[in-house]
């Protein structure tokens, strides 16, 4: 495991654990999701740059476009949740529990 590989794996797993374990706000969860996509972006571009694969260097841009899609959808859901539940705390999302 080379150091760049370790760095992006560590950031991805950090963001994933941050998302999975205790989150107070929905917005913080979305921030963690964006952090995951960001570490994936860095990983993808480093992979293509290190191996010098020219035709693969466009794929980080596609990844960034899709993560922008995800982020905007998440923010729209944030607005909808804030309107229907009154706040964006994840603890208030408890209408459907068993």
């Amino acid at each position: 495991m080379t150091p760049p590989h370790f760095a992006f794996s560590a950031t991805f797993i950090l963001a994933l654990t941050g998302l999975v374990f205790h989150r107070t706000h929905l917005l913080s969860a979305l921030l963690c999701l964006e952090g995951m996509m960001l570490s994936l972006f860095v990983a993808l571009s480093l992979w293509a740059l290190q191996l010098d694969i020219t035709s693969f260097l466009a794929s980080p841009l596609l990844l960034l476009a899709f993560s922008a899609c995800e982020a905007s959808t998440g923010l729209a859901l944030l607005a909808a949740t804030a309107r229907t539940h009154g706040s964006d705390r994840l603890q208030s999302l408890n209408l459907l529990q068993c």
Binding site: A7, L14, T24, H25
Partner: peptide, 21 residues
């Protein structure tokens, strides 16, 4: 890179979280 991701992941308020991002 790793340290600032820790700053995002440790559940601060969203203001500080977005700064970390």
């Amino acid at each position: 890179f790793i340290l600032s991701m820790i700053a995002v992941a440790c559940n601060p308020s969203p203001f500080y979280g977005s700064f970390g991002l």
